[in-house]
Amino acid sequence: MHEEDEFGESGVVKRFMYVNRKAPYGTIYALECLEMILIAAAFDQDVSVVFADDGVYQLKKGQDTKAVNMKNFSPTYRALDDYDVEKIYVEKESLEARGLSADDLVIPVEVVAAADLVEIMAAQDVVLSS
C-alpha cells in the first residue's frame, strides 16, 4: 500500500504545528526537528512552523560552522518553501528580546506578536515540539 492509499484517501486534514524553541548546534533538536518538518510536508496536512524563544536563532543569517566542524543546516530552511510550507511564524517578542529583526533571518517569515500567536497556537490539532 503506498502513502496515498494509507493517508490521502482518508481525507483527514489536521492542523499540525511544529514549535521550535531551541537554538541550533548546542543540541541536536533543531536539526532533527527540521528533518521532521520536511517529512511532514509530504503529507497533505495543514502545516505551520513556529520559532519562539531561542528557536529564533535557528534562522539567523550568516551561520558559519566550518570551525566547529558541524553541518550548517540553516540553508535547508529555504527548502520549506519548495515543500509548500508557507505558514512560518516568528514570535516578535522573542526576536526583539534577542536584539534581532526579520532582516536577520535566512527566510521570509511572518513576525507575529505573542497575543496573535496565542490564537494561532490555540487553533492547532497536533503540536509537535522537540
Binding site: V19, R21, M121, Q124, D125, V126, V127, S129
Partner: peptide
Amino acid sequence: YEATQAWL
C-alpha cells in the same frame, strides 16, 4: 482537552 502541547 482537544490537543496537548509539550513545552520542552
